[in-house]
Computed example of a mutant assay.
Amino acid sequence: MVDTAVSQYLETLRDYIRWGSSEFSRAGLFFGHGTDNPLDEARLLVMHAVALPFDSPDSLLDARLTPVEREGILELFRRRIQERLPAAYLIGEAWFAGLPFAVDERVLVPRSPIAELIEQSFHPWLDEDPEWILDLCTGSGCIGIACAYAFEDAVVDLVDISTDALAVARENIRRHELEERVFAIESDVFSGLNGKCYDLIVSNPPYVDARDLAEMPEEYRREPAIGLASGDDGLDLTRQILREAANHLNPGGQLVVEVGNSWVALEEAFPELAFTWLDFERGGHGVFVLSREQLVEADLL
């Protein structure tokens, strides 16, 4: 519980960041939706409350706050602690691949290591820039929209089964003014694509197994379960993607999928596939690359 009476002892941005960090630690919050520690989480909420960028100069931290600003900060702290809402939901925004995206409880908070691949233009996996890209299980649209920035001549389809998620994705398409070449499509995996083919398919599908889902911190329970859970072993959707992706890839096309901790189970389930597992400088694991030709040769149907 946040004690609003404490505001009489706190005057500056720095005071609130320090106090908020301490309260978050005492409350045992989990940090994994954009920040990884209580100090950064407190700073993110404080700076949002006073309409300043997170990375504002430290010289501003000694600025004193108005009563209204203090109330706004304390309300954000209260909700973060009592409701266990990730900070991204509280401020309505998350950053991915250096770009801002609108987010709320209809979509997962962007955090995929695939951002590094996008920033590197998927080198060395693509021989040339793709003209047609599919972001499968798009959620907020962050992966596909970031791809549209990386490949300025590409047409990108953002696909999801959730109409709620697609509403957020469309908001982000408008936010980034990409309506002419990025399109949101409702589809259960590939079923609504009418046979369309792509040079690059990227997917961060639900991949959390039943055991991990049951043991997740409370913050993850504020995210839509449809974006996390995928059967007992976490592979229900990935199996479908692997079996159908070759039919939607152009010759030389690449499939990039994140499966997180389910990567061991995936290798056991598909011994005939030579998965290439990627390493990331900024952390993350469980992302593989397969070519259309590898999928065709494996003959998974």
Rank of each mutant, 00 (worst) to 15 (best):
E219F: 08
V103G: 01
I173T: 09
H176S: 03
E131M: 06
L255F: 09
Y9E: 02
G195P: 12
R282D: 13
F31G: 04
E258C: 11
E71G: 14
N247P: 00
G32Q: 06
I241C: 03
L61N: 09
V155D: 07
A94L: 08
L85H: 01
A97R: 13
V156L: 10
F270Y: 15
L65Y: 11
A97Y: 11
E116W: 10
M47S: 00
L61R: 03
L295I: 10
A265E: 14
D153Q: 15
R222L: 08
V2A: 01
L235T: 15
I185Q: 01
I81T: 05
F96R: 02
F183T: 11
R18H: 06
E219Y: 03
L45M: 12
V256T: 12
E152A: 15
C137W: 02
G20F: 02
A269Y: 10
G72H: 04
I91R: 04
A49S: 15
E223M: 14
T12K: 01
F101Q: 08
F288K: 12
E93C: 10
C137E: 02
A115W: 02
P86M: 00
G286R: 09
R282C: 05
C147I: 11
F96T: 03
P100V: 05
L301E: 12
Q240R: 15
L301I: 02
D164T: 10
R64V: 13
M47H: 02
V289F: 00
Q8R: 14
I114R: 01
F190Y: 15
S21L: 04
G92V: 06
V202M: 05
P100H: 09
E244G: 02
G231H: 11
T238H: 09
G286H: 13
M1T: 10
A165L: 05
A269M: 12
T4D: 01
E177Y: 10
D157Y: 12
F270K: 05
L273Q: 11
E83R: 08
P271V: 08
D279C: 00
L266M: 11
F270V: 04
S162N: 03
G139V: 03
E83Y: 04
G195V: 14
V189F: 01
Y207H: 15
A265R: 13
Q294T: 04
L29T: 06
F275H: 08
V287T: 14
L90E: 11
C197W: 00
E223H: 09
S21Y: 07
R181V: 11
A150D: 08
E152P: 09
L90T: 11
R222Y: 04
R26E: 15
E69W: 04
L90A: 12
L44E: 08
A269C: 11
A246R: 13
E272A: 12
H33P: 01
S162W: 03
E223V: 06
D62A: 15
P124M: 03
S7H: 02
Y207M: 13
I81L: 05
D188T: 07
P100E: 10
A27E: 08
F96A: 02
L249E: 12
D188A: 14
G98W: 07
R243E: 13
V2Y: 00
R64M: 07
F122Y: 11
H248K: 05
M1C: 04
